[in-house]
Design a binder for these strands. Structure first.
Length: 420
DNA sequence: TCTGGGGTCCTAGGACCC
DNA sequence: TCTGGGGTCCTAGGACCC
């Protein structure tokens, strides 16, 4: 059996943990740039606040019901996530951390009738150790475990655990899951399935396998077998090797000045480089892009991206920024209002296994020493204490984060103080 | 009448996830 | 004023090879 442990309203629960006064109160957490709702407490959901709702459209609703609003604070969520995963790792020797708020546990070695009780123990320990509420779904396949998890959240949140361990329960779960709620079925496949008369997961599981293979590709075919309780999606304990590293952001406001857009790109590129170094990776190619605000349909639109092959794998900020700048010169067009740019590192290799190029002119050893200094200084004095000229000092491209909570658990100046 | 065919690699685009 | 960001996987089609 496979268990899926999923934190309830994770980001909202994290914020609430440090403001116990918000227990049973409506909370929402906003995306980058305070753009739209990406997490909400049950109380906020009950008010009719939709996932993904643009915050400027629901402002009056938020005020009217005195909803607490937070900018997203990934440092805080990441740290609490680590603590949840650490607790989980004590209850299984096969743990797959699937996302910031979810993990699969392999419970194959357990006797069936012990599994549910065990899951309750896990749930209680996470509450005790970290203070985050979780739900647990258990089933013979990952897809069904996801389904079980969703059902317990939806139909009996207090219970916290649901186990699909009989044919009857499996049929019940499939019949009570709409096609668009199946893991692996997104908006396009929902349209396709609905058009063809499928309503529930049960209907899908009764379809001819060839039809699924033909219309939903091999990914759909795996999902189809998983619905029948045949586990096809492998368990992956080790975090998979990264294949790309991307930093792309919308600006706090639209920018038309070439230097300002370039400055934003330089900063995002520097972030990519720092990320590569922190994971001991280097890149052989970067892809950069610039784009206008697609939501402003009355303004002229422009999007262009460019892939740049590097002479040799690197993770040094100055070289990547220089390459990005050259590329930027060819894709930038004046006269547009830009609102987003980004840099993606592709073709990653381990930093220690760089294939050196005989005709290379870069001073690699010197660069890498320089980067070590940059990383050390920035670790001690803040992210951008030491930077390259092209990164500039402008702030107009920066994110809007008006409602940011403190990093209670990761920054010593921001720990919680209690007045007694 | 009949204009090769099979394999591999790469890329863009489309689907999905949280 | 204002609509997220960071990923993975699969497929189709073109280029190229022999």
């Amino acid at each position: 059996m496979i268990a899926l442990v999923d934190c309830n309203n994770f980001y909202a629960s994290c914020e609430r943990l440090f403001q116990p006064g918000l227990q049973n109160k409506p909370i929402v957490v906003l995306s980058n740039n305070d753009g739209c709702v990406i997490a909400r407490s049950d109380e906020a959901r009950a008010l009719g606040i939709e996932m993904g709702a643009p915050s400027f459209l629901i402002e009056s609703l938020l005020q009217q019901h005195n909803v607490s609003v937070f900018s997203s604070n990934y440092t805080l969520y990441g740290d609490l996530s680590d603590r949840v995963m650490t607790t989980l790792s004590q209850y299984t020797d096969r743990l797959e951390v699937y996302s910031i708020d979810e993990a699969f546990l392999d419970l194959t070695s357990f006797r069936h009738h012990y599994v549910t009780g065990y899951a309750h123990t896990i749930r209680n320990m996470i509450m005790q150790n970290v203070g985050i509420p979780v739900s647990i779904g258990i089933a013979p396949s990952k897809t069904l475990a996801k389904m079980a998890n969703r059902l317990v959240k939806k139909r009996n949140k207090q219970a916290g655990v649901y186990c699909i361990d009989t044919e009857e329960k499996m049929q019940f779960a499939l019949q009570n899951t709409a096609v668009n709620d199946i893991w692996g079925i997104g908006s396009q496949y929902t349209k396709l399935l609905t058009r063809n008369g499928f309503v529930t997961a049960w209907d899908v599981s009764r379809a001819p396998e060839e039809w699924i293979r033909k219309n939903l590709s091999v990914v759909g075919q795996r999902m189809y077998n998983e619905l029948k309780g045949i586990s096809c999606i492998p368990f992956e304990e080790m975090p998979a090797k990264k294949k790309m590293v991307c930093v792309a952001r919308g600006f706090g406001k639209v920018l038309s000045d070439k230097n300002e857009v370039m400055e934003a790109l330089a900063n995002f590129t520097a972030m990519v480089a720092a990320k590569l170094r922190s994971e001991q990776l280097a890149t052989n190619a970067i892809q950069i892009f610039v784009q206008t605000n697609a939501h402003r349909s009355n303004e002229p639109q422009y999007f262009r991206s460019l892939t740049i092959q590097l002479p040799e794998a690197t993770n040094s900020t100055n070289e990547l920024i220089r390459q990005a700048r050259q590329g930027f010169e060819t894709i930038y067009r004046p006269g547009y209002n830009y609102n987003k740019t980004g840099c993606t590192a592709m073709e990653l290799v381990p930093a220690e296994k760089i294939q050196y190029n005989m005709f290379d002119t870069e001073n690699r050893a010197r660069n890498s020493q320089l980067m070590q200094v940059v990383d050390t200084v920035n670790r001690s004095f803040g992210k951008n204490a030491l930077r390259f000229a092209l990164q500039g000092f402008g702030t107009r491209w920066k994110l809007r984060q008006l409602k940011l909570s403190p990093c209670y658990t990761t920054r010593i100046e921001e720990v919680l103080t209690i007045n007694i």
